[in-house]
Amino acid sequence: MTYPEDPMDTTIVPPRLSAGLSLHPSGATHGGENTPVIDLADVAVWYGDYQAVRGVSMPVARNQITAMIGPSGCGKSTVLRSLNRMNDLIGGARVTGVVSYHGQDLYARDVDPIEVRRRIGMVFQKPNPFPKSIYDNVTYGLKVNKMDTGRTDDLVEQALRGAALWDEVKDKLKTSALALSGGQQQRLCIARTIAVRPEVILMDEPCSALDPIATGKIEDLMHELAASYTIVIVTHNMQQAARVSHRTAFFTAELDDAGVRHGRLVEFNDTGRIFTNPADKRTEDYITGRFG
């Protein structure tokens, strides 16, 4: 596994995979003040006796988009879910190593997972709006967090504008969220997430159920969101990682001596470096398509 030579070096080498794609609109801050929001140190995730993924050490920098890529079964979604303790919901799952958020160990005994998820929101692979109205979808997070004081309508508008959905739904806020298209539903899920003002947004393959046009809209949105939020995205789509992310973590799955598959982090670096000059042979094989 390889780190950038200087972990504090946050200079971004703009990825140049496809010509003509301008990468990060000026939104993201690339200043040297960028201490990690989340830091993983030798993290492993277990399901019962099975170690699903191990040896994960990487920082997640503020106001940047960090991508996790790798083949199926490499543990990238598992690691993502460990960042806001969604793995707690799976019986028998546990995390070893340290996941720290502003220096606080998220798995310390006295940490309340509810509070963690309030600050570290999540957007899922399949759009999963609540079977309620568009308006109620956005206000749900405000209600459960007792944030719906007085100016709820404004907060709903803000959130929907923030997710680039307002113009499409402003006249039908009280209609069913399930009547929206897949891409609109996913943007509604993003709106619902940003309504509670998290610091970090985790996205688990947010475009895998969407067509290319809807995918493009979500990617544009991610660039805008990076100005105010820290984003971690898991994606199967390497071009997507190259287009949207500042830094990329490459995971793979390997058999151990006993023939059991474990996911592991192979390489973490600036996205440009990963895609143009990877340090590890396995990364190179994967991004050039020579892998499995």
Binding site: L89, G121, F124, N128, P129, V144, R192, T193
Partner: peptide
Amino acid sequence: SIRHASYALGATRWQTVSRQ
């Protein structure tokens, strides 16, 4: 997925059960 969406927004277990 409904439960996960609710938890991911910071809802407690009882909020998730009673409201969703």
